[in-house]
Measured scan of single mutants.
Amino acid sequence: MASQGTKRSYEQMETDGERQNATEIRASVGKMIDGIGRFYIQMCTELKLSDYEGRLIQNSLTIERMVLSAFDERRNKYLEEHPSAGKDPKKTGGPIYKRVDRKWMRELVLYDKEEIRRIWRQANNGDDATAGLTHMMIWHSNLNDTTYQRTRALVRTGMDPRMCSLMQGSTLPRRSGAAGAAVKGVGTMVMELIRMIKRGINDRNFWRGENGRKTRSAYERMCNILKGKFQTAAQRAMMDQVRESRNPGNAEIEDLIFLARSALILRGSVAHKSCLPACVYGPAVASGYDFEKEGYSLVGIDPFKLLQNSQVYSLIRPNENPAHKSQLVWMACNSAAFEDLRVLSFIRGTKVSPRGKLSTRGVQIASNENMDAMESSTLELRSRYWAIRTRSGGNTNQQRASAGQISVQPAFSVQRNLPFDKPTIMAAFTGNTEGRTSDMRAEIIRMMEGAKPEEMSFQGRGVFELSDERAANPIVPSFDMSNEGSYFFGDNAEEYDN
């Protein structure tokens, strides 16, 4: 993207840094990872977990959730003011799984939030270390993106479920800051804005008074975040219109849905970061690795190297396929839920299948599930090659597409044709070009129609051997075009429920 120079890199967003050079960025990201790792080690000690239990991804998720809940100030305040039966607002906890007599047992633990905050700050040299908290939120978000298709949420806001490739980060909490905003897809931002506008339509006082002023500035800020994701002048001009509207209503909703559809071809720039579970960072720190000293990046080879040398386990339900569970977590670790499966298959070195073909449910185990038949197995999170994460949407291309997802959002900077089903997408653009945004709409449609099938995206960008740390010898991959490109292809993934 041309304006790259004016933006802070995501590592800076990730670490609240002012302008830093590459070495400083690597050190501050490393410091953040160190903090998460030290916190995780301490929690495993508190909970008396064995090494194996500490490497269980379900335990990692519970521990991450506990610290996120302990620092969720708004919710904590709300819980104190609106006490609900049987919930102690000062405590947080969740299921911890232990191996007892050759069987997995679930144990519900409860801790004072104050105590968890103390352990977290102690692991982070006394700081609140917001960057580390956001990092864990993005890992949870990436896992949700890989596990669930947001059909219901899309339909509720009037969008087409086939636009799911635009929904990265749709389950990120509001408090995820600049680093969170960077990884949100165009569809996620559109959905947040539509929800806001709908509230304004239904509630006369939404934009009024002292609160209304705050609401208005939040609305304009979200519009600017979305505008910054678009790469064409016409899309940005249309966002200006939406932002400046005196009284946002149905016309703005129409414009936003139009823009979301246009992003299936004229893709937005959305950041991709490899955020790993805390149970990967903990053992690495415990083994003596100093992330701050060595430096770390979320968008280069580092996460690949770390996963190459990590042992992570997962509980497996009786009829689940461990290899499929591994694929789910591998995609989440690489922030690749909406990437082209052919690119992923090449990088991973084994075939990556669409969601609907995987015999696996989510990673988390519900409290009512029976533990008797639970097994555990090693997650295979290694890769054959590594590639640089991208934040450009890439230019655009036609490809055989599917009944489910009709476009992709690249996660890796790797040369390819970008699949999208042009006739299906263009069919949504018939007729409606009147109104105050008509010239911009016409211009956007013209650009979409001009998108050429034979153009290559990320020209000359390749993948790298894991021994090639400096990215000196790019390998331009070859793809098996007979395979499906979309992950949520004609899909039956479970729906995400809060």
Rank of each mutant, 00 (worst) to 15 (best):
M191N: 11
A218I: 04
S262H: 04
E192Q: 08
A234I: 12
C333N: 03
A278D: 11
I388W: 02
P318G: 12
F412C: 04
R65T: 07
S274C: 11
E18V: 15
A260F: 04
G200C: 07
C44G: 11
G180A: 07
M440S: 09
W207E: 05
G54K: 04
P161M: 02
P303Y: 03
G393P: 12
E24N: 04
E465A: 03
D127W: 09
R74M: 12
S310F: 08
R389K: 14
S377K: 00
I265F: 01
D51F: 02
P354A: 14
H324Y: 10
A336Y: 03
R26D: 01
A179W: 02
M448Q: 14
R195H: 09
K7E: 11
K273I: 10
S28P: 00
N76G: 03
K48W: 03
Q409L: 00
G86D: 01
L307F: 11
N124D: 10
P423A: 11
C333F: 06
V363R: 01
S377D: 00
A2P: 00
M481N: 03
M196H: 02
A234Q: 03
A218D: 07
L166D: 10
E469Y: 09
K48D: 11
S438H: 15
M13V: 04
L110Q: 03
L307N: 02
I257T: 11
T350E: 00
G393F: 02
G490T: 00
S28A: 13
F230H: 04
I225A: 01
I301E: 07
D255A: 04
A366F: 05
N224V: 13
L79P: 04
R162F: 11
L226D: 09
F420R: 00
M222L: 03
I225S: 12
N21W: 01
A373W: 10
C164T: 07
Q231S: 09
K198T: 07
D203N: 10
S274F: 10
K98P: 03
F420Y: 15
E64W: 05
R162L: 07
A337T: 10
N211A: 14
R246Y: 14
G404Q: 11
V476E: 12
N124M: 10
S367L: 02
T45R: 10
T151W: 10
M159K: 07
I33S: 04
L418I: 15
V363I: 15
G94L: 04
S287N: 14
P419C: 13
N124A: 08
N370W: 05
S217P: 00
I36A: 13
R416F: 01
E11K: 11
D439K: 01
A278S: 12
N250T: 09
E292Y: 02
V155K: 14
A181V: 02
F488T: 00
N432K: 13
Q12G: 00
E24V: 14
V414K: 01
G94Q: 09
L307H: 07
S176P: 06
C223H: 11
R162Y: 09
Y40H: 15
Q409G: 03
A451Q: 13
A493K: 11
R106N: 12
K184S: 07
Q308V: 13
G169I: 10
M374E: 02
E254M: 13
G450I: 13
N211G: 10
V242G: 06
S392M: 05
H82I: 04
